[in-house]
Amino acid sequence: MTHILIFFIGASLLLYVLLGGSDYGAGILELLSMRSKKLRREQTRAINHAMGPVWEANHVWLILIVVILFMGFPLAFTTLMTALHAPLLALLVGIVVRGATFSFRHYDPVQDEKTQRVYTILFGGSSLWTAMWLGIIAGTLNRGTIPLARAAGEVGAVDAYILPWLDLYPFCVGLFVTCIFAFLASVYMVGETKEPELRNVFTRRAAISNVCVFVAGGVVFLASLLEAKSLFALFLERPAAISAIVIAVLLFVALWKFIKLRNVVFARVVAAGQVTMILLGWWLLYAPNAIITTEGPVSFYEVAAPRATQLQLMLALLVGSCIIFPSLFFLLRVFKTRSETGAAN
C-alpha cells in the first residue's frame, strides 16, 4: 500500500514538473527581450491563451503532494517544513505573486500598455523566482544536511534553518530547474501560435534553452564535487539512474528531428520524455528515501502513517483519479485539440 502512495507522490511530482513547470517557463520566457512590441504582445496573448484554462489545474499537483505527505508521511512533512521554512516561504510568496499577477493581467478590463507591462514583469519575475526556489529545495533534499526535528533544537538557528540550503550546489540545481522549465515552455509554445515569426522565436528559444539545460546540468554535476558525496559517485551506485540520464541525452536527437519536421505533437512528447527521464534519474537516486537527514536517510516506509490512514488516503487518491483524469482529459480536449487553429484568432 505504501508503494502506491509513493507512486502517487512520484507521479504528482512528474505531472507538476511537466505541466506546472511549463507554466513557470512561460513566465520566464516573457522576461526575455523581444524584437518588437507587436511580437511581445503576440507572445503574451499566446501564453494567456495556452495557460489560462489549465494553469490552476496544473497547480493542484503541488497541493496534492503536500496533502499526501502530511497525511501519509507526517514526520517527513514536518521535518521538511521546519528545516526548509525559509525557502518554502520564499516559494510561497512567489506562487502567490505569479498567480495573482497572471490573472490580474488577463482580467484587467483596461488593457493599457503600462499596467500590462507591470503585470508581465511581476509575473515573469515571480515565475523565475519561484522556479529557482523549487530547484533550491529540490537540490537540498539529497544533500544530507536536513537536521532531524529533535536535533534542530541542539544546533544553532543558522545551522538548523539556513545552512542546509544556502550553498552553491542547491543554487545550481535552481538554475537547472529554471532552464528545464523554460525549455518545456518553449517547446510547448511552438504549437500554441500560428504567427510564423513568433513560432520561429519559440523554436529558437527551444534550441537555446535545450543547450542551457545541458550546460546547467553539467554545472550541477561540477558543483556536486564540493558536496560530501558528488553526483558522480551517487550515480555510479545506481546504474538505472545513469541509464535514465543517458536516455534523456539521446532523446535530444529525436527532439531536433521533430522540430525540424515541424511536428509539434511529437516534439512536445519528446521534450516531456527528456524531462521525465531527468526526473526519473533523480528519483532513482533519491527513492525510497523520504528525507535525507544529517543522521542518515529515512525512507518513506519508516515514516509512513498507520495502515488505516494509508488505506483511506489510497482510497481517496484512487477514487480521486477516476474523477481527475477524465475531467483533465476533457479540459485538454476542449482547449488543446483546436489550439493550433484557435491560438491566433
Binding site: V60, I63, L64, V67, I68, F70, M71, G72, P74, F77, T78, A305, P306, T309, Q312, L313, A316, L317, V319, G320, I323, I324
Partner: peptide
C-alpha cells in the same frame, strides 16, 4: 496529519 488528513485528501479532488 494521519488522523484528520482525510477530508484534505478528498478536498484535493
Amino acid at each position: 496529519g494521519p488522523i484528520f488528513g482525510m477530508p484534505f485528501s478528498w478536498e484535493g479532488s
